[in-house]
Amino acid sequence: MQLTEIRIAGFGGQGVILSAMVLGKAASIFEKGYATVTQNFGPEARGGACSAQLIISDAPVAYPYVTQPDIMVVMSQEAYNRFAPELKDGGTLIVEQDLVRVTGLDKKKEIKVYGIPATRIAEGLGKKMVLNSVMVGFFTALTGLLDPDAVRKAVADSVPSNFRELNLQAFDKGFECGSTAAPDNVEAQLEAETVTEG
């Protein structure tokens, strides 16, 4: 678990902050690592946009901010436009594919792009609200950064008890998608699709 900078961004109500909390908790409480989550509390945090920064490491984290994210999860077009250029060369970009159209990525940076219709999957499970758990599952499988059991525990520990089961289902579903996803295919698929929402 070497020092990894992660940004998660989207809009309010998508569980952006909660996703960061779950992953951070998994790393630092249910595994032996360290994690620091900071949120953007600036005036821009009001209204739509919402973003969290998560640093995971096997040593205590001093500098708490993301400078060049290794991994970025974006769940809105606005967040994509704003943050995607920050990504590190060879970094990983995970998008909510129904909401984000991946355009203008610098090919030389060799960024691996993965997409998942997290909202649709969550709706399929009966509650749109759990899309963040779908995303967290997807993230866990794709990145291999954290022990899936630890993340599962963190999900269970972070959601209201009456929604625990549903969130775990959502996590599993996302994890399943992540286990089979291949970056290039997704990218091709993304480019073929027209995104109407944003």
Partner: peptide, 10 residues
């Protein structure tokens, strides 16, 4: 300070 107040860690 605001950062320490709003920063989440173990």
């Amino acid at each position: 300070d605001e950062v320490v107040g709003h920063m989440t860690e173990k």
